[in-house]
Design a protein around this nucleic acid. Structure first.
Lengths: 131, 131, 131, 131
DNA sequence: GTGGTCTAGACCACA
DNA sequence: GTGGTCTAGACCACT
């Protein structure tokens, strides 16, 4: 697969898999119904233990992003459209505030930050090269 | 001090201190030259082990946010004005992209996300100098 | 047949067949002597491997719910009237206790649970003989 | 601890731990704030691998029944009072129907079943000996 | 073949 | 000391 694992990162290996699949689903790189490599296949490809991959898949299944069909493999689930709850929005606002703090310490003013964010959103919407 | 520590959070205790001081500096709640409580004082206030507080101060000093003057205490450092490097901007863009992924899974569309971000920035600027 | 198989469920496919036949027999939806579809027929209908269906039939036969007559097909067996043994009752009490535990964690009080149970039993009795 | 693990059961070992802690919490055998044995302690007591215990604790934490305080151990969380959702009730009704099916095959009539259930609830409410 | 579970033993971050 | 992560290798149930 197209996953890139960095064994030197602080982020746990299984988490890196989860993050990248989450991104791929969010960006529609992975269409619903697509079959993911089997736990053991992917483990070989990424030079990881199969338990590590299994844990990542398990987490993704718990989140409803993928589905396991007994003995047949693992597939990307249909997206479950939802309305963000007030809690979700509050959480997101907090995350944004965290970024603004980091931005300050990098010398990025809030207004400049908002420009950057606008640029990223624009690039995002264009689907950025697909793949 | 006004720090709030949540022992249940998965964020390490020392990291919570660092984060909150970083925020206070970024928001100008802590002016340069302000004296911080000593490691032991703060440890008592927050009911933490003083090693935990010491580690937070160490990290903050490493980042240049605070300065220790031998025998006189610890003080908020003067901000070191800097221009964001291209790497800094690229890093920030990546963080924003991470948030957009999370937003997608919460059902927050990129455009809506940008509105939220705009709101947060507006609130941020207003509160500059506040408190 | 009227079976509904969910390949996404964690319940094994063969078990889902067994469960649903058990229910149909218990509710008298399937009268004794009714002929069941052949293993291969059912396998095609449900889009399952015929080994899966065969395993379900095997299990049902072991329990005495169905009977295979050589060359003539598989039939719903005559109910074998029995008195519940003390062990059976004890087992059932344990199952009920399990449900009460689950109910607690859903915020369903034991008294409320008993009301729900009463409702289900009422509905059950009404549907006896139906469909 | 008072846990009893049956290595011969089909139920996964970690699941047995989860089930029994869930019961203990539901029955108030474990008061909020009580400290659970450490992962490794319990693993030794139950003659299990510590990973197995860790997995059980992780699941219990995900459900909000227990809380981890960094480096200090694991504690029974305060119950989070909730109203059962319609989905919860529907799920419970389905479970009860499953029990009625099983009851039928044991020769337990629905009315008799309801009597048994009433008895169990009565015993439950009396808290059954505490311990 | 698939995923799920378990063990043994190891290393790490945190307090 | 705590829990979190990872590996290696094994066994099992299901399809």
């Amino acid at each position: 697969m197209w996953l890139r694992i960095d064994p030197r990162s602080e982020v746990p290996l299984y988490q890196q898999i989860v993050d990248q699949v989450r991104e791929a689903v969010a960006r529609r790189w992975l269409e619903p119904g697509t079959r993911l490599p089997s736990v053991r296949e992917l483990a070989v490809q990424l030079a990881l233990n199969h338990n590590t991959v299994a844990r990542a898949y398990q987490e993704l299944e718990r989140e409803g992003l993928i589905e396991t069909l007994r003995g047949r493999g693992t597939f990307v689930a249909k997206p479950n459209p939802r309305m963000p709850s007030p809690d979700d929005v509050a959480w997101m606002e907090k995350q944004i505030r965290q970024l603004l703090i980091a931005a300050y310490h990098l010398g990025i003013e809030p207004k400049v930050w908002l420009e950057i964010a606008g640029r990223v959103v624009a690039g995002w919407s264009q689907s950025e090269g697909g793949f």
